[in-house]
């Protein structure tokens, strides 16, 4: 197991997939981080040198990912709610925010939309 930014990954995991595991770090950013550290596209995390892993962890710690990124989204929703907007209200009621119908097909909104949104 290789520990990257406090998360343990299996050695056979692709570096790109391991990076994308973090919230708010998608394929584009992952590829750029890998290029910056000269990691080839098909590299597995087990083949990285400890030095590279430390460098990656240092790089990730400067980025807005995981709880920081979640906090931004939650703050945005909270602001809408505090202003008393329609969107904020819809978030609070776990209902679709952007004018979708609520008769059916609203399971995702019910599941995800809330003031303390998880991700």
């Amino acid at each position: 197991m290789v520990s990257l930014f406090g998360v343990n990954f299996h050695e056979a995991k692709l570096v790109q997939k391991a990076l994308q595991h973090f919230y708010a770090l998608g394929p584009q950013t992952a590829v750029r981080i890998m290029a910056k550290h000269s990691i080839h596209p098909r590299a597995k995390i087990g083949t990285l040198s400890p030095k590279t892993v430390t460098a990656l962890t240092a790089e990730l710690s400067t980025m807005t990912i995981e709880s920081d990124a979640r906090k931004i989204i939650q703050d945005n929703i909270k602001r809408l709610r505090d202003m008393g907007t329609y969107r904020g209200r819809r978030h609070a009621m776990n209902l679709p925010v952007r004018g979708q119908r609520t008769r059916n097909q609203n399971m995702n909104a019910i599941k995800l939309n809330r003031i303390e949104r998880k991700g």
């Binding site: 890998m34 290029a35 910056k36 550290h37 080839h40 596209p41």
Partner: peptide
């Protein structure tokens, strides 16, 4: 090639 420089 498929490789990228550090400046992407």
């Amino acid at each position: 090639s498929e490789y990228r420089s550090s400046a992407f």
